[in-house]
């Protein structure tokens, strides 16, 4: 388990000028969805973007977070 505010602050720290939304999907603080919009993703493939997010949450992904659904956008990509 990990607090959504903590996940959000870690992601904001990791990415420059980032818009971050974190949703607790199950109410159990271990299944999350994160929406991240940052210029850091510009020109990067999805797989690279997801790797960047996993790297930012490396410790959390080892146990506290069981599932993480990702939506990763560069500015202007979000429909």
């Amino acid at each position: 388990m990990v607090e959504p505010e903590y996940v959000e602050s870690k992601l904001k720290q990791a990415f420059s000028d980032a818009h971050v939304e974190v949703y607790d999907l199950t109410g159990t603080k271990d299944h999350y969805k994160a929406v991240i919009v940052t210029p850091d993703f510009t020109g990067k493939l999805l797989i690279k973007r997801h790797r960047m997010v996993y790297a930012a949450l490396e410790e959390e992904m080892k146990g506290p977070i069981h599932a993480l659904t990702l939506e990763t956008y560069a500015p202007g990509e979000r429909s």
Binding site: L46, I47, R51, Y54, M61, T69
Partner: peptide
């Protein structure tokens, strides 16, 4: 170098997880 399951390989190359597959 990917922390979650499922993982998909196509033609010997890592494609990603379920979010990437879906998109």
């Amino acid at each position: 170098s990917w922390p979650t399951i499922p993982q998909i390989y196509v033609g010997g190359e890592f494609l990603g997880g379920s979010d990437i597959l879906t998109q």
